[in-house]
């Protein structure tokens, strides 16, 4: 009854067009989009925490002492390019070009790993310069937000490695286009979260200092009027 060699069994997930659904959208693809909608709230809440506590740390180091925008611009660029490699991998999977798929997947993995490398370097630098997780509000909110983003990227890297291995072992049609496509959705989502983080934490918040004169209300107004201007 039970197969001992299930990996050699037919594809685990039937290709999209074989599955009949009410809306015509594949179950797993719909699941991934619902998950991404849900994950928006996850990162939304983490970002909200950061924004609420922005500029409220009463001891240093403050972002302006420690954030290095040029380096992070480079790592942002790397992550963007990994998204490009990913979408090319999806295109290769759609065309059934297994060799190209594997190449693009590994390029994505390498670029993603470089991004993580930058993050590890940055975290370590911060630690050396005296910004530990428990130092101040900035460190707690910053490490939590970027750390969970990094965890998402790391998970994505593992996922893509699995796909690349599966693709290398199965010249005929595994992983399916849908498998790659769904992993790609996740990967791009992680990229767009970073677009938001890069803007808010680095480009805008990267120059924050200690609490400014005046109350949080003043800063709130400045923030809103800045948004409108």
């Amino acid at each position: 009854m039970a197969h001992a060699d299930t990996t050699h069994a037919p594809p685990a997930h039937p290709p999209a067009h074989e599955e009949e659904t009410t809306t015509g959208i594949n179950h797993r693809k719909l699941l991934m989009w619902v998950f991404l909608g849900s994950d928006c709230l996850f990162f939304g809440s983490l970002i909200a925490t950061y924004m609420v506590y922005r500029g409220q740390s009463i001891v240093g180091p403050y972002p302006r002492d420690i954030i290095d925008v040029p380096i992070t611009t480079v790592s942002t660029f790397v992550l963007l390019m990994s998204s490009f490699a990913m979408v090319m991998g999806v295109a290769a999977a759609r065309n059934g070009n297994q060799k190209r798929l594997i190449q693009w997947l590994w390029l994505t993995i390498v670029l993603g790993s470089i991004f993580i490398g930058f993050q590890v370097y940055e975290f370590n630098l911060f630690r050396v310069e005296g910004l530990r997780y428990e130092t101040n509000l900035f460190s707690s909110t910053f490490f939590t937000l970027t750390g969970f983003h990094g965890a998402h990227v790391t998970l994505g890297i593992f996922w893509l490695i699995c796909l690349a291995i599966v693709a290398a072992r199965n010249p005929a049609g595994r992983p399916s286009h849908l498998d790659v496509d769904i992993a790609g959705l996740y990967w791009h989502f992680v990229d767009i979260v970073w677009i938001v983080i890069f803007t808010l934490l680095y480009l805008i918040g990267g120059f924050d200092g200690p609490p400014e004169a005046g109350h949080a209300a003043v800063q709130g107004w400045n923030w809103v009027t800045g948004l409108i201007s």
């Binding site: 909200a48 925490t49 924004m51 609420v52 949080a216 209300a217 800063q219 709130g220 809103v224």
Partner: peptide, 9 residues
């Protein structure tokens, strides 16, 4: 949340 902690507080 930003508004509640900033402007409206």
């Amino acid at each position: 949340l930003v508004l509640l902690f900033g402007v409206f507080r």
